[in-house]
Nucleic acid binder design. Structure first.
Length: 822
RNA sequence: GCCCGGAUGGCGGAAUCGGCAGACGCGGAGGCCUCAAAAGCCUUUACUCGAGAGGGUGUGUGGGUUCGAGUCCCACUCCGGGCACCA
């Protein structure tokens, strides 16, 4: 498309200007009201794609808009620069991940600048910066000292092909390794954990006060998975001094317990297993621990080898409700790391127990009377209890309370809250991450690396080969060191931290990136925290956002964030994904439409306007055949604005008259609309409002009657200001041409609508007869019910529609509507 | 299976508090300008009956509440997402 101006020259001029002038640099002692706007820490995967563009267009609009509102806006940028893709690329190319990463960082930085997004680049941070590593390690050691970091054995994802542990995200939905395609195994390994479960309750309850999308909050609530129940003892029949401890949320179904189950990992399993049953039990345990998680969890749905999923242990326990003995089974459908790792099984009221009972021929007792007509096998709803002794007749809620009370006094029962949330496994057997700063000494055990020896950096002279093992584990210079306590030879930890640790505190370093002697000065960070507006993709709804919340709470508790809020992100906006013919647009799918394709035609401004206009920011965006036409339309709009600005085809009259008043009203009402739309994240309607205004002003200016110069100038200035956060380049350029004596449009105040012009002298009131619109009359906005009714009945069209009939009722809702009922 | 979210013209979408359904844009149709084209500008565009004036229908389906429902309530269908043996 041909443009009436040189888009590339203008855009590059202003991008250089903003950067060189430090227009969006902001100091911590800035006296203005503060606003912290932040887009999620990006992984540097190369030049920006449309997903990035969408993210940064919204972010940049917030930054520029809040600046025009007179605030000191913190807008930092940095890179989540550790991670697997760089490591894999380096292995493939036989080079160092740093080279690959820094090249990608450069590309991404160049392309966000080309988009016109503005940042305080002095504050740039990136995860693999030795300084950043130092503070990441300091935080780890503070957690270690506080007992929030600990080492334990854990079942992890093990890829036999790569001979390494994988993160959950690296395991595909079918249970195979994303890289080698091997079936991922479970393995018991010593790993580092963060005690996020200590914060389960706070992470859950403080969600309530966050201005986050309900969807994200719900996902986090589900992930935390709070459930209230009772933990109690099932005494062993052959030795009642010993007991199997179980957790249940349905103590009311206790009379229906016909067996008990322990997880294959349960510590009492050996004790429970009798010689006769040992072989079969060991089979179950071997299978459960060696097969993939997917295989273990999917076999029930497919009914594959159902009888192999569990076996009788040979022992019995006593049901405290009935005093009857029930068999104890081992089964893989009970998890070792939730609750007590053992359950009471109630096949009458639990689907999973029923499935198992059916296969193993165990009795089913129903304890809740299902409603009439219920024909299922398992009833989990409410109803009066039956077959339940002292609980008979009670509903579920009543019976739960009474049964819990009974267990408290008869079975060492205790009310208990369990969470689905697990501790955060942070060890990664990877090279391209932040090294975990501890050493292992034969005499002193786990010894933290002392502060003055930080950061612990991975050596550069490594060969990234295809063995799949981290080169740290075999690099003798790195591996062997001296124990900080006793001075003897000791081994370094060769695992690195999950990269989610880096993105859990970067927003704090952004607030105070210059402090040389600590991760951040809480007093400085407190000036900006919490982030006023956080913007990112819905795909981080659980992991990143949960981890970052945990970090700030933990940093508070270990004394590194004293005086800071406990929640990092007050408002969150999650933008929709870009889809191309139904699937997510991504580099790996090779279906990218790069932003570069548009810079020479509609420019960054046109592309930005498209992303704002295309639909609600939170909705997914379908990239279709029509999309290119819409993008052209956005460029066309900018051209029309440019031409009107330059008085192309405009007729003038000298003195302002009624037509000018109408134009001015439209302009001021648009200020009100756009401002309101910005506040409620409705950018598509804000763009539509400005388009409407341009149509109105153009029409007036091109009419034979023409427009007063003062009216045109006022309207154009208003439009330029309203457009400034959306299409920053062209508005800056035009403003400079017209107002060379003034500061840049971006440094001016956001326009305020004149209330006198927003107010309406007359409004259109709809008159209906039996709910159908029959006439429209002009009335004063403040008209009374009676006057509105009178005005409606006086209308000629209404008189005709009534045709002499007498209304049975008139509903007057002035000034919008009067409805006459016959 | 459970939990969220959604369904409006040919398309993306608008309707903020229960009150004119379809703003704005894309696409289409017709026209102006031009030797011609591109660009630009103007008109028109939910469906349907009608030459027209005008009428009827219409927000996934079926009910309900109300003077009035895209909006609220009940039941359902389809689509998208999250979680998925968490006892």
């Amino acid at each position: 498309m041909s443009r009436p101006f040189d888009v590339t020259v203008i855009e590059e001029k202003w991008q250089a200007r903003w950067l060189d002038d430090g227009t969006y640099e902001v100091d911590n002692d800035d006296p203005r009201e503060r606003f912290y706007a932040l887009c999620m820490y990006p992984y540097p995967s190369g030049a920006a794609h449309q997903g990035h563009v969408r993210n940064y267009v919204f972010g940049d609009l917030v930054v520029r808009y809040q600046t025009m509102l007179g605030k000191a806006v913190l807008s930092p940028y940095g890179f989540d620069s550790f991670g697997l893709p760089a490591e894999n690329a380096a292995i493939k190319a036989g080079s160092h991940p740093r080279l690959f990463t820094e090249a990608r960082m450069h590309e991404l930085k160049t392309s966000v600048r080309r988009l016109g997004a503005v940042y305080d680049w002095r504050r740039e941070v990136y995860s693999h910066d030795p300084e950043y590593i130092r503070w990441s390690q300091t935080i780890f050691l503070a957690f270690l000292e506080a007992g929030l970091a600990y080492r334990a054995e854990a079942q992890v994802n093990w890829c036999p092909g790569c001979k390494t542990v994988l993160a959950n995200e690296q395991v595909l939905a079918d249970g195979t390794c994303e890289r080698s395609g091997d079936l991922v195994m479970r393995r018991l390994l010593e790993q580092w954990f963060f005690k996020i479960t200590d914060y389960a309750e706070e992470l859950l309850t403080s969600l309530d006060d966050l201005e986050w999308p309900e969807r994200v909050k719900t996902m986090q609530r589900n992930w935390i998975g709070r459930s209230e129940g009772v933990e109690f003892d099932l005494p062993l029949t052959y030795d009642p001094s010993k007991a199997l401890r179980v957790f249940t949320t349905r103590p009311d179904t206790g009379f229906g317990v016909t067996y008990a189950v322990v997880a294959p990992e349960h510590p009492m399993l050996a004790l429970l297993t009798t010689d006769n049953e040992r072989l079969r039990v060991e089979e179950i345990v071997a299978r459960a621990t060696s097969i993939s998680e997917i295989e273990r969890t999917s076999s029930s749905s497919e009914g594959v080898a159902a009888e192999k999923r569990g076996a009788f242990t040979g022992s019995y326990v006593t049901n405290p409700f009935t005093s009857e003995r029930v068999p104890v089974y081992v089964a893989d459908y009970v998890l070792g790391n939730y609750g007590t790792g053992a359950i009471m099984a109630v096949p009458g009221e639990d689907e999973r127990d029923y499935e198992f009972a059916k296969v193993h021929g165990l009795p089913v007792v129903r304890t809740v009377q299902p409603p009439e007509g219920f024909d299922g096998d398992v009833y989990t709803g409410d109803g009066p209890h039956i077959n339940s002794g002292f609980l008979d007749g009670l509903n579920v809620t009543e019976a739960k309370a009474k049964a819990a009370e009974y267990l408290l006094s008869h079975a060492n029962g205790v009310a208990k809250v369990n969470y689905r949330l697990r501790d955060w496994l942070v060890s990664r057997q990877r090279f391209w991450g932040c090294p975990i700063p501890v050493v292992y000494c034969d005499d002193d055990g786990i010894v933290p690396v002392p502060n003055e020896q930080l950061p612990v950096l991975a050596p550069d002279d490594v060969t990234m080969d295809q063995t799949g093992q981290s080169p740290l584990a075999t690099h003798e210079g790195f591996l062997y060191t001296t124990c900080p306590k006793c001075g003897k030879r000791a081994r370094r930890e060769t695992d690195t931290m999950d990269t989610f640790t880096d993105s859990s505190w970067y927003y704090l370093r952004f607030a105070d990136p210059f402090t040389p002697d600590k991760a951040f000065d809480p007093a400085q960070a407190a000036k900006w925290m919490p982030v006023n507006q956080y913007i990112g993709g819905i795909e981080h709804a659980i992991l990143h956002l949960m981890y970052a919340r945990f970090y700030l709470k933990a940093l508070n508790d270990v004394g590194l964030a004293t005086g800071l809020p406990r929640e990092p992100f007050q408002r969150l906006f999650t933008q929709g994904m870009i889809r191309l013919s139904g699937s997510k647009m991504s580099k790996s799918k090779g279906n990218l439409v790069t932003p570069e394709a548009f810079y020479g035609t509609v420019g960054a401004d046109g592309l930005r306007l498209f992303h704002l206009f295309a639909g609600p920011p939170g909705d997914d965006l379908d990239w279709t055949d029509q999309t290119l036409d819409v993008i052209d339309g956005c460029g066309r709009f900018i051209d029309r604005f440019y031409r009107l600005w330059n008085h192309y085809d405009v007729n003038f009259h000298d003195v302002e008259d009624e037509s000018d008043f109408a134009v001015r009203q439209a302009a001021h009402r648009t200020i009100a609309r756009v401002t309101h739309d910005f506040e409620r994240w409705s950018y598509n309607t804000a763009v539509a409002a400005i388009m409407e205004l341009l149509n109105t002003v153009s029409k007036a200016a091109r009419s034979e009657h023409g427009i007063a110069p003062s009216t045109l100038e006022e309207s154009l200035d208003i439009m330029a200001k309203l457009l400034a956060p959306m299409t920053p380049h062209i508005t800056a350029e035009l403003w400079e041409e017209r107002h060379p004596d003034q500061p840049s449009v971006h440094l001016l105040s956001w326009p305020v609508a004149d209330p006198a012009l927003v107010a309406e002298a007359e409004v259109t009131m709809v008159v209906q007869v039996n709910g159908k619109v029959k006439a429209r009359v002009l009335v004063a906005p403040s008209i009374s019910d009676d006057d509105a009714t009178a005005a409606a009945l006086a209308d000629a069209d209404i008189a005709a529609a009534l045709n002499g009939a007498t209304p049975t009722r008139v509903v007057a809702r002035p000034p919008r509507l009067v409805n006459i009922i016959l």
